[in-house]
């Protein structure tokens, strides 16, 4: 496991703190401006979902490397209600039509890899990975 740092999400201000952490990490790992903005947007989205639907949780950023490639994983975890229908939240037009923002499909598009684990009543863990091209 690589170097990991985290931000607790309790209030809306923590979203900004999580963004700041993500941007700093992305910059240090060597991502360009556009990818930094993409990673930050993904963190924003994940942190907002924790704040809005789980109440509290955390965003962790892990640096990774493999075969000379470098990247980061965003881990968003909460002990909220869980997602009853994952397929639905992964559908285009589901969250955007309600004005909720880019939603999960947006996060998936911004990153290279996206994994979601959720248990009703126990919480959700989302891992989103991005590599430097």
């Amino acid at each position: 496991m690589g170097y990991r740092s985290s931000v607790e999400i309790l209030t809306e201000w923590d979203i900004v703190a999580a963004r700041q952490l993500g941007r700093n990490e992305a910059k240090e790992v060597g991502f360009g401006t556009v990818d930094q903005a993409r990673i930050t947007t993904a963190i924003s989205e994940l942190a907002r979902n924790i704040y809005l639907y789980a109440g509290k949780g955390k965003i962790e950023i892990e640096r990774i490397s493999e075969g000379g490639s470098f990247g980061i994983i965003i881990i968003a975890s909460d002990e909220g209600p869980g997602i009853p229908d994952v397929r639905k939240v992964m559908e285009d037009g589901f969250s955007t039509s309600g004005g909720l923002g880019a939603g999960m499909p947006g996060v998936k598009r911004l990153m290279d890899d996206f994994k979601i684990e959720t248990v009703l009543g126990e919480g959700t863990v989302i891992k989103a990975t991005k590599w430097i091209r």
């Binding site: 401006t33 903005a37 993409r38 947007t41 955007t96 911004l110």
Partner: peptide, 21 residues
């Protein structure tokens, strides 16, 4: 320009979503 890039991310996402829809 950095601010503008940040702002355009969501336009990009909206565009990609439209394409997929």
């Amino acid at each position: 320009f950095d601010l503008l890039i940040e702002m355009m991310i969501r336009y990009g996402l909206a565009h990609a979503e439209h394409q997929s829809l």
